[in-house]
Design a protein around this nucleic acid. Structure first.
Lengths: 149, 149
DNA sequence: TCTGAAATTCATTCCTT
DNA sequence: AAGGAATGAATTTCAGA
């Protein structure tokens, strides 16, 4: 991976629908070598995919909560818990951490009432969970815009 | 926004580079009305943009840390702090929260040594910060794949 | 709002440097 | 590895239903 590959990644992180021609012009290449590089980056898994970024408010997901969760620290509990998360669509992101809390979720729902329902019906019902701590997001201070390259 | 618009959003969140023809076929429309809807969603800000998803390991950003930060709760401190975050590229995401901690960052760096450097040189140097608590991510349990629609 | 056709632009392959 | 030309597709616009 040289400077040009990094430049390609930078451009495609900013605009994933750039045409190959525009992209080539920006990175100072002609169309065919540029396309070869993009294909290679995709094949190598450096580019994992492309996604449209959707406004959460527009689809009724404007209420976001970070949830710290403690899970019993045995393998069965952890695996069952993490598997259960996959089936809750409102959980849009989840991390297993060293130390405490053992897990952090980002949840996106319509409003407080929807979150209350999710909390009582699903979060407190998860097996092996010993503690749930919800923190409502007041503001996104820095949007995820991809990685610095 | 009707069922078809939501279907369009679902497809483009999964593959942001779908050709308009493929997209049209999937949502049961012919090419031109499909394109008009996509343009409208873009114009309305429902689709905020498109991004390539880059493998963090491939670009030396495979070491991720969640950082809880307490900031003095006066307007000047909060604004200065949040502004300062914008200039730290390793901070890839930041949320201001109700309650405690006042702020949560997600940071992506190359390795522990790089994080140590960032912590001592920049995080502890931020004005108005009264507490910094770092938690290293062991595993991404659920990848952000866009919002459920 | 959709369909279908027309004009333009783009992706993709192949061949040369 | 990169550039350039040729091709086959796709995007995009526009008229009509």
């Amino acid at each position: 991976m040289d400077r040009i590959d990094l430049h390609i990644l930078r451009e495609l992180q900013e605009d994933g629908r750039l045409s190959n021609q525009d992209l080539a012009a920006r990175v100072g290449l002609s169309a065919s070598p540029c396309m070869r590089r993009v294909r290679q980056l995709e094949k190598d898994g450096v580019i994992q995919g492309y996604r449209a970024i959707v406004d959460p408010d527009a689809v009724g997901r404007g209420f976001e909560v970070l949830v710290s969760i403690e899970v019993r620290r045995d393998r069965a509990s952890v695996e069952a818990f993490e598997h259960a998360l996959q089936d809750i669509p409102d959980v849009v992101e989840a991390y297993r951490l060293f130390g405490s809390p053992g897990c952090l979720l980002r949840i996106a729902v319509a409003d407080l009432a929807a979150y209350e329902r999710l909390w009582i019906e699903r979060l407190t019902a998860l097996d092996g969970v010993t503690e749930v701590n919800s923190q409502i997001i007041m503001k996104r201070v820095k949007e995820p815009k991809g990685l610095p390259v």
